[in-house]
């Protein structure tokens, strides 16, 4: 597969939370708004790209017996970097995402890509793979978060506490606060997964 293929596969064909149903813990937990989804997604993308980069660089140097331990050390280092930088420059987002930032260490998408892809492939393709999967993850979280935010509080991305009157939905819209609760996350994920399957089936039928 070419570099472009490696990049684009993460955007639709193997988009992590929907197609592989991986990394569901942050997917369901933090997506109460679009901006939270983007924040979580970008943090994960950063870790994913750099862990892929370093795992691919060091793949001939790391003995197979200790590869998982080495990968985890590499991943954990980048997670701590993300955590410190976020705390220093994006404190409100850091407060909202809370424990889910350190938990990126155990996000199986990242270890999965390191083990299944970056440890067997060259530098450039590994970068493309990490970037693709990461952006796909970010988009998924953003769409899921926006859907929940729209239905659950009637607002969208630009909303913050400084102008609380901003509503996207019609005026008499009564928000489904259910969508912001944990079960609402499953419902929204199911709806999006169904929609994706519908589109894929439609495409397959049209294609032949």
């Amino acid at each position: 597969m070419s570099i472009t293929d490696e990049f684009t596969k993460g955007l639709w064909k193997t988009v992590a939370p929907f197609r592989l149903v991986l990394g569901l813990c942050p997917t369901l937990a933090v997506t109460t708004s679009g901006i939270n989804g983007i924040g979580m997604g970008l943090a994960t993308t950063f870790v994913l790209v750099f862990s892929n980069l370093f795992v691919s660089l060091l793949r001939r140097f790391i003995p197979t017996q200790v590869r998982i331990a080495s990968f985890i050390v590499i991943i954990a280092s980048f997670v701590v970097i993300v955590e410190l930088v976020m705390q220093a420059y994006f404190y409100p987002l850091f407060k909202i995402l809370g424990i889910f930032i350190p938990l990126i260490v155990v996000n199986c998408i990242i270890l999965g890509r390191a083990e299944a892809f970056a440890s067997k492939n060259g530098l450039l393709v590994s970068l493309a793979d990490g970037l693709g999967i990461g952006i796909g993850f970010t988009l998924s979280l953003f769409v899921l978060g926006s859907l929940r935010e729209l239905l659950g509080s009637g607002t969208l991305l630009f909303y913050d506490s400084s102008h609380p009157g901003f509503h996207v939905m019609w005026e008499s819209f009564e928000p489904f606060t259910f969508m912001l609760k944990p079960p609402g996350a499953f419902v929204a994920l199911g709806l999006l997964l169904g929609a994706m399957n519908l589109i894929s089936r439609h495409q397959a039928r049209k294609g032949g």
Partner: peptide, 19 residues
């Protein structure tokens, strides 16, 4: 194995303390 793990750990520690 020991050398590789030690090196990776040390490098990671160094970077993190700088950050």
């Amino acid at each position: 194995m020991v050398v590789v793990l030690t090196l990776i750990g040390a490098l990671s520690g160094l970077t993190l303390s700088a950050i």
